[in-house]
Amino acid sequence: MNRRQLMLRAMALGLIPSLTGCDYEDPQHPDLADKFLHAMSAWNDRVQAALFDPHTLAPTFRPDQITRPPRFNAFYDISQAPVVDETTYKLELGGQITDKTPWSLTQLRALPQQEQITRLVCVEGWRVIGQWGGVRLSDFLHRVGADTKCRYVSFQCADGYYSSIDMESALHPQTILALTFLGAPLTPAFGAPVRLRIPTKLGFKNPKNLVQLAVTNIYPGGYWEDQGYNWFSGS
């Protein structure tokens, strides 16, 4: 083998990963590369948890910086956004919570509200700035008697989407159960009746159209997380 062939082979080495099937293609049947990526993702979860400072606030913006028109994003078309009957709506509570009485929208609106103009960074790389208002999640968790020593808060959505966050991020002062967007009640496409708004995490960690919230020590995963997106996905 001459040197030129050797060099071509060395360059071809770099192409091998794209030719093999090591790509989170089939989460049910992980290959060696998938296991390596899983282990590194778990390591990155721990690094991000260590890096997370509960006192560091996400940047806030002026009203004139808000992205208009707002950008819809989901794993389906905007016409498929789930429409929840707000008159009969109840947010179900589960897991390590003392008072699991479901909450109606009227009850949630009666709680102290917080407004924020923050940036939503999508895992794809783009970002938008929006205005959200609602109940601070830490207030809500304390009010219902959640065990805040548990590790996870999980969310189920009306469209089958689900996600979960670490307790430290859940207790962050900018993490809210949002009821309004751009000064008006949420519309179905933007998460009606209730969505999680957490500006210290990527967009897909902000589940919309919430139907259930639970506190648990059992890793709940998430719709995208179970397919390979990093679970912590802090910003």
């Binding site: 790509d23 989170y24 293609e25 990526l37 590194m40 993702s41 397919q227 990093n230």
Partner: peptide, 13 residues
């Protein structure tokens, strides 16, 4: 990485 999730996983590993 054949899709975004795999590419990010490789990048951050």
């Amino acid at each position: 990485g054949q899709w975004l999730g795999a590419a990010i996983a490789w990048h951050l590993a």
